[in-house]
Design a protein around this nucleic acid. Structure first.
Lengths: 166, 166
DNA sequence: AAGATATGTCAACATGGCTGACCTAAAAAC
DNA sequence: GTTTTTAGGTCAGCCATGTTGACATATCTT
């Protein structure tokens, strides 16, 4: 017999956990599907999207800050960022106080692509929000936030809220 | 002035959509982080995890059914599945009615690894559920389900519910 | 017997991670 | 003012995991 005191409540039972895990797997696939399609037309991948997204949301971000957000190495970033800079989607300017820094911003061209990607991705999310209703959305945010390591949670939520993803 | 009739309700405003998108991005990263760590110790990757997961949840699944779930090519699947079969994490048996099929099941060794991976992933999800509460979980599921293309939604939800992911 | 289907396999390629080593320019510390 | 640290870039190579295309085999269906 299960120990009643520590027994898993119904909504935490294993089947429900498995269902939630699979749902997140499928949902994430669709979540990235629309941008992926557009990116392919530009010869870009998901990595380019992430850079465009976070540079767009954090104008004048430094490379180091971007690396923290993306949690990748500078060599990995260099490949996609280099392309975006060469093809003039992103502009680099030396930092005002620290001229070693390359502060990143979207060019007009970059902002246009980012907007195109945002539009379809936000469209999908907006439809999901609308269908589920505001309380569901609030609940969803709570659950998703709960998946983040407690040690990192507050910093990440802060950065999301400010649109300052550093 | 915005047209009141089609004005985006507050919870659908652009900033909130952007926040939701970023939250999903971060949450998914943590969602996969614990299994990834374990898999690395076995020389496996995320692709192996997916196969172990869906074979575990769908004993005697066929290769064709697994391909539909994973949405990858059979060549991609062959690489990871081949390894898992060779290293005896997964067992193949000809179908009873159709002997062309290779029905897949976890071996004991495979079930043990799958359980180890499930344990940490379910642990993280369970903590998030517990912190957010049952209503939030229900809302979360609604939103995530809403991200799935309507054309595929019912089939996917059915497959999740049955634990028959085909 | 012929054709369709389930699966496997070979070869080649792309993306996007990684490590390690090394370079420059600018800031900070001594 | 020299040294050290820091921000960033770059080269080379490796790995995981996706792709396409072509082809082989066994088995089921017609």
């Amino acid at each position: 017999m299960a120990d009643l005191k520590t027994e898993t409540p119904p909504h935490l039972a294993e089947p429900s956990l498995r269902e939630g895990i699979e749902l997140l797997f499928y949902a994430y696939r669709y979540f990235t599907s629309d941008p992926d399609e557009i990116l392919a037309r530009y010869g870009f991948g998901r990595a380019h999207h992430r850079v465009l997204h976070f540079v767009g949301g954090n104008p004048d971000i430094t490379v180091a800050e971007l690396l923290v957000i993306l949690s990748i190495t500078k060599q990995s970033l260099a490949r996609v960022l280099g392309t975006l800079v060469r093809e003039k989607y992103i502009d680099q300017q030396p930092g005002a106080r620290d001229r070693r820094q390359r502060r990143l911003r979207l060019t007009e061209k970059g902002a246009a692509l980012e907007a195109e990607l945002s539009r379809v991705q936000q469209g999908r999310v907006a439809r999901a929000y609308r269908a589920a209703g505001p309380e569901a959305v609030a609940g969803c945010w709570d659950v998703l936030a709960g998946l983040i390591d407690p040690a990192d949670r507050e910093a990440i939520l802060r950065s999301i809220r400010q649109g300052k993803s550093a």
